[in-house]
Design a protein around this nucleic acid. Structure first.
Lengths: 110, 110
DNA sequence: AATCTATATCGTAATATTGCAATATAAAAT
DNA sequence: ATTTTATATTGCAATATTACGATATAGATT
């Protein structure tokens, strides 16, 4: 075992879980927040901002890219990463939706 | 290695990552969505809704509870789980915030 | 009290993730 | 052309996650 049984869930659920999982690590949260902080999308020095070795950061960047949360374009001999807005919007919509539904219930619960 | 270096990141980043990681599995997304769907918080039959064995579901519920995304109260010999609204709100705020910041930038980027 | 029902825990196998040193790659600067 | 700079990839050890059978626990029912 050990492998997630994605085939038993809806595409929606799997896609969402992939996005959330990609953000489910403090280093990757930190990367996103750094990309937010620096006004223009920054080339490179993410490594210097994080308390992790260069290969580790590179790996986290790859995961964020695979999940569709950031994109990177080559800029000379460095690479320019920035946030993929659609992905953030997808998440924003999802939680906004749940929040609305929750406040409509108020509160048949425990 | 294999252990996340949480001590190098801010509490905010770690807390957020914990919440997101907890939702970073389709089964746990499905659990949250099921708790949303059934109007009153449901006792038990989450197991029947999911394509996973009972111990597995129990484990996923525990993780959601540890992350503070759901709470469970004993109801006779079964347990009544429901969504912890504050946690969802925290996430909703976070992404709403990022979205606003992103749309204010429009788009010094790549 | 014995049994049933609902849930949790234990133990364990399969797989995934995290982190880094070493190395590769490729453009830029000398 | 060689070196420097920036990033990616490989290989690997440590740890975590996922899944489930077997078993434990605890309240409800008989």
């Amino acid at each position: 075992m050990g492998a997630t049984k994605t085939d038993h869930f809806t595409d929606q659920q799997n896609t969402l879980a992939t996005l959330l999982k990609a953000l489910g690590h403090p280093a990757r949260v930190a990367i996103i927040e750094y990309l937010m902080k620096v006004d223009t999308c920054i080339c490179g020095d993410i490594v210097n901002e994080l308390p992790l070795a260069q290969p580790t950061v590179s790996q986290h960047l790859k995961e964020l890219k695979n999940a569709g949360l950031i994109k990177g374009s080559i800029e000379g001999n460095s690479i320019c990463y920035c946030i993929e807005e659609e992905a953030i919007e997808k998440l924003q919509n999802y939680f906004a939706n749940i929040s609305v539904k929750l406040s409509n219930k108020k509160n048949n619960c425990c």
